[in-house]
């Protein structure tokens, strides 16, 4: 079954990723809606991060097609692009499961590095900037304003001049999202953004993601184990198990999907009906 998406920002078609004898992703197809929050869930080792790495160019898929679509109708075939061009041209940004900040640089500097490409252009590839041309100064001001905007949204303004490595864990997570947003993406891919957050921080994250979707018109694709986040804010959920898609639908559909429950609870295929029955009973009583 495939959930119907009217206006996809990303389509994945027949994606296969093979590592030697292991088929990590097996004929996976799904769409990500332009203004949706889409969650990719599944038990450990289901191939979620592999899918992410294929989308963001860190792996080249063995087979399949990954297309990013912009509003104007521009199409980008991500599986053929260099990894650094995916955020730069196709506007698909990502964060990492194990946070990757520039720890020795300040919060503001991290956000400025996120805007490297427009700033580089404004500095005429350094030649204008080194002679202090006014064009670059203006561009830098605009970049600082954008950085300030995201610091406000993530509550990091007070820590603007502190080293990123000095921030507590939850703030580092937020900074990584803010930094990715500074690349002005059309699609933001988050790899376990709520991992290691306490309930309050995880609520703040929910709010931030909803804000990004609503105000910034950015699609969000996230891998998450925290069901509070997944069920609370997702519009669309895709469930993977052993590299295969086992379910694809709205949170309500997924919550009641027998194969998902089986995959999470580890039930043999022939017992699925039994489990399904039990759930129905439980719901009616």
């Amino acid at each position: 079954m495939t959930h119907h998406v009217d206006d996809p920002v990303l389509t994945v078609e027949h994606l296969n990723m093979r590592f030697g004898g292991l088929l990590a992703v097996d004929d996976l197809s799904f769409d990500v809606g332009r203004s949706d929050i889409t969650a990719l869930i599944g038990p450990n080792g289901a191939g979620k991060t592999t899918v992410f790495n294929c989308i963001t160019g860190f792996y080249k898929p063995t087979e399949g097609r990954i297309t990013a679509l912009h509003e104007g109708g521009a199409k980008f075939l991500l599986e053929r692009m260099d990894d650094f061009k995916i955020p730069k041209v196709a506007k698909v940004a990502r964060t990492f499961q194990n946070i990757r900040l520039f720890g020795g640089m300040t919060v503001l500097e991290n956000l400025m590095v996120g805007q490297h490409n427009p700033l580089m252009l404004a500095s005429n590839y350094t030649f204008g900037g080194i002679f202090g041309l006014s064009g670059y100064k203006k561009a830098e001001k605009v970049a600082v304003e954008l950085a300030k905007y995201w610091m406000e949204q993530t509550g990091l303004t007070a820590r603007a001049d502190d080293a990123a490595g000095d921030l507590p864990y939850g703030e580092q997570r937020k900074l990584e999202i803010a930094r990715a947003m500074c690349t002005k993406p059309k699609l933001l891919c988050l790899d376990e953004p709520a991992a290691g957050l306490n309930p309050r921080e995880s609520d703040e994250l929910n709010k931030l993601l909803l804000f990004i979707r609503k105000e910034r018109d950015t699609g969000v694709l996230l891998i998450e184990h925290d069901m509070n986040v997944v069920m609370g804010i997702s519009d669309h959920i895709i469930v993977l198990d052993y590299g295969k898609k086992i379910a694809d639908g709205t949170p309500e559909e997924i919550r009641n999907d027998a194969s998902v429950i089986a995959a999470y609870l580890g039930v043999a295929d022939d017992e699925v009906e039994e489990v399904e029955h039990e759930i129905e009973e439980g719901a009616s009583s």
């Binding site: 860190f58 650094f84 955020p87 964060t95 900040l101 520039f102 720890g103 640089m105 590095v113 490297h116």
Partner: peptide, 15 residues
């Protein structure tokens, strides 16, 4: 400096 800190993060930001 960002390259010194983390090369993979650089590439994920389009550098």
């Amino acid at each position: 400096e960002a390259l010194r800190e983390d090369e993979i993060a650089c590439r994920s930001l389009g550098l």
